[in-house]
Amino acid sequence: MSTLNFDVIDPIIEYALKEDIADGDITTNAVIPGEMQTTATMTAKADGVVAGLPVAEKVFCKLNTNIEWTTYIEDGSFVNKGDVLVQVKGSFRALLTGERLALNFLQRMSGIATETSRYVKAIRGYKTEILDTRKTVPGLRLLDKYAVKMGGGTNHRIGLYDMVMIKDNHIKVAGGITEAVKAIRPTTAAGVKIEVETTNLNEVEEAIAAGADIIMLDNMDNETMKRGVELIKGRAKVEASGNMTLERVKDVAASGVDFISIGALTHSVKALDISMNIDVPQK
């Protein structure tokens, strides 16, 4: 997810434009002459990491193909309050009509990237990677996960189809971790990782014996996680999950886990404040 696949993302943008504009921006079309051209700038109003500039550009290009887009920074860059991110030239109508949608995408994605970067910075010096989850806005998962990458995080599975995740309900129905893994292996393509969720050290031992590729230590305290890592002894990758905070994450990384997954990166987003100022031509 270090790049954006616009074959998939274009329909998201087109739906969002239809939702916001439908048959047209009745206010702008009534007030702004169709031939009027102008220039606009997008500026960071807070410190953070920017993500989503190509998405914002695509919004305007769908409204007017003659838009000129000049970026001064790249996605994944840290910016300070007051930094100009981009200059846009073109149809006044297109810039005014697309302003809110472009900012909605850009601010949300930059908020995710900024929060991710805080967690990545907090565990600097450890081997541990920060993972995202499936706790994304429906329809926006690829954008959310791209933003995590721009913040220095690592994408976990994209959906239910690209990795096995055996959780508590699977284990209960199967009759245990061993039985669940046995049921899954014959139906799973080679190279697809099998992860098992565990909640105590007995389950960790069972997951090791079953041959799990990744073992999740779910909602364990730091000391129990450390003991879990010692039990696993490198025979599987280890993911810590549950109740992760900036204050706690360094101690979790110190336990020796390979990954820390954090749902709050995408389910509790605080948008990065970014403004767009449009020049009004003098009559």
Rank of each mutant, 00 (worst) to 15 (best):
M109S: 04
M276Q: 09
I13Y: 01
D23Q: 10
A190D: 15
K135C: 03
D144K: 01
V8I: 15
G76H: 04
I21E: 06
K45E: 12
M1Y: 12
G263V: 05
G263M: 07
L142E: 10
T198F: 00
V229G: 09
T245L: 10
E129H: 08
K167D: 05
K58D: 12
L95C: 00
F60P: 07
I184F: 11
I13A: 02
E239K: 05
G211A: 04
T136C: 03
T114G: 09
I123P: 01
E195W: 07
S268T: 13
I73T: 07
E223I: 15
I73H: 01
A30C: 13
A46L: 07
N64E: 08
V181F: 04
D218H: 03
T188S: 10
A113R: 09
Y119R: 11
P54F: 09
K89Q: 14
V257A: 00
G24D: 00
M42C: 07
V229C: 11
S268R: 14
V269S: 01
M150Q: 15
M220A: 01
L143P: 10
I177G: 06
K18M: 06
L140S: 05
M1H: 12
L85Y: 01
M150E: 13
N222M: 08
I214F: 01
A264H: 13
R134T: 05
D25L: 08
N169Y: 01
G159S: 15
P138F: 01
D273E: 07
S77R: 09
P33S: 06
R118F: 06
D273W: 06
G234L: 10
T198E: 00
Q107E: 15
I232V: 14
V50T: 09
M220S: 02
Q37A: 13
A190V: 15
E205H: 00
A174C: 11
L103P: 14
G152C: 04
T178Q: 08
L101V: 08
A253H: 00
G152Q: 03
R235Y: 00
M216T: 12
P138I: 08
V280K: 15
H267M: 12
K283T: 14
V148R: 03
K149I: 14
A240I: 02
G234A: 04
I232Q: 13
K121A: 14
V249Y: 00
V196P: 05
A210W: 00
E129A: 09
F259Y: 01
M36S: 08
V120R: 12
L101A: 08
A22Y: 06
Y119M: 03
G48M: 03
A22P: 12
I177Q: 03
G111S: 08
A122S: 11
Y146D: 09
K149A: 11
V257Q: 02
P186L: 06
T38M: 11
A56Y: 00
L53Y: 03
E35Q: 13
K250Q: 12
E239R: 07
E197Q: 10
P11G: 04
V238W: 01
L53V: 02
L17M: 09
D83R: 01
S77N: 13
D251N: 14
N222Q: 09
V120A: 02
